[in-house]
Nucleic acid binder design. Structure first.
Lengths: 252, 252
DNA sequence: CACGCAAGTATATTAGGTACGCAGTTACTG
DNA sequence: CAGTAACTGCGTACCTAATATACTTGCGTG
């Protein structure tokens, strides 16, 4: 298999890569690691990452909280597994396009779609370099998209990293906005007050005074931003950013 | 001042913008919001964001935990204030360079320096669009750097957003790596075992099998990555990414 | 067939955020 | 000037959530 056969992986990675040993004595297991991860992912999809507590996940499975620790070492490890699981389809991903540019574009779109399916990804702690099977598989696909370009390997990796960090942060902002609105509405319900809506543009106009922020002030009061909230197409915005990055890559 | 004079800002933003009213009756305050924020920032600088608990901050100031709630509404609000405070110097930032490109480059460098001074920024929850005075001031500087280019305002904002999200995520990865190493060493100390060091490259070579990840496998086993850990210059890496983005901007 | 590892459970501990009410303090108000 | 309202810092208490530990029971293996 590999050079370091047998040497134990760092904690957390072993499970991720399916290398947690384990004798086979004792009662039959009532669950599998996948069951636990699936339940957690389902919960996160439905209620956001905050909805995921060990107790809640265990409930979902009809087990007690502590039983989960027979399958994962810590909540953190569970989060890693969830993160990996969220990208579960990428192995058999086919990138269409006959040039690197369209392939990379569709690669970015795929990532964005994954995040849209699992918005909680944007809330993940992300304490560790993503050495998960699916993350690497996805990177591999990105490298594949750059086949045939004369780019150095290191540059390819950089491009991949650049695109995916842009995608993630764009998605993060989008979902932060969604959450902010949801939260505001929730607050408005139980406070029973008029609760001024404070659109984003209204806030900007309120806060940005002309002396300190001349350019922002100008933008905030221009018609362009004026009816932002309605006609605003986040997806187009995202695509534009991707194209800009691709332009930069083209220059390499 | 502005169109909506008097309408209360959403919670959290009022303090950020110095608009938490408050009569002046009652005992003199023993602290100021700035004292609290400063203490929290000092703690975070020294011990990371995990070191920041309300109790710990209060201890630092010689007050009880609950007294802090006379100054901030919640820990979350405190975090927002910390985030804003971390960028405290940007108002009087001078961007050198006579063309937009060098100005933007130095703008990115400044952001990176801020993060280097306060690495905990990369660990922040970031639940909300950054409507903080200093964030906006920094954006304003970015716009300023793009003065004279024919770019549309919306495009300028996109460029700014793109660069800063890249900067943040690059810094995040860098500090994640630092933390991972520190944590590994800490674990090695109290376990008293040989505790195989598992360099990043060794891990990659162990995990990435040729069949599934041909390109990654190739990279992992190439000399280029081989002695990565030592000769690896993260700063140069970062600069390269910035240049790539700037190339993309140039194409606009 | 009994030994001992392993699975699920119950209980408890710890950490951290925050609601609530108290007692003392100060400044506005009549 | 007295009264009172608004405000201070504090102590206590509650809640959520992760997880350590010890127990009970199941079952493959020697």
């Amino acid at each position: 298999m590999s050079s370091d056969n047998g040497r134990p992986l760092p904690p957390g990675l072993d499970l991720l890569w399916g290398r947690r040993g384990g004798g086979r004595r004792g009662p039959r297991r009532g669950l599998s690691v996948d069951d636990v991860v699936d339940a957690a992912v389902r919960l996160a999809d439905a209620e956001g990452l905050d909805g995921v507590s060990m107790a809640r996940v265990a409930d979902e499975l009809g087990f007690t909280t502590m039983s989960l620790y027979r399958y994962v070492a810590s909540k953190d490890e569970l989060l890693q597994l969830m993160w990996n699981a969220s990208a579960n389809g990428v192995d058999d991903l086919v990138l269409d396009g006959d040039n690197w540019r369209s392939r990379l574009r569709s690669w970015s779109l795929v990532q964005r779609e994954v995040i849209d399916r699992h918005p909680w990804i944007t809330q993940m702690p992300m304490a560790v370099p993503p050495l998960a099977p699916n993350s690497l598989a996805f990177v591999e696909r990105g490298l594949q998209a750059l086949d045939g370009t004369g780019l150095a390997d290191a540059d390819k990796l950089r491009v991949i990293g650049l695109l995916s960090s842009y995608t993630l942060s764009e998605a993060r902002m989008a979902y932060d906005a969604v959450r902010a609105i949801a939260q505001e509405q929730a607050a408005a319900v139980d406070s029973a007050e008029p609760a001024a809506p404070w659109s984003f543009e209204a806030l900007l106009r309120e806060l940005v005074d002309e002396a300190t922020y001349p350019r922002l002030h100008n933008i905030a009061w221009s018609a362009a931003i004026g009816d932002n909230m309605s006609g605003f197409d986040e997806r187009a915005e995202f695509m534009f950013g991707v194209e800009t990055i691709l332009d930069g890559v083209q220059a390499l």
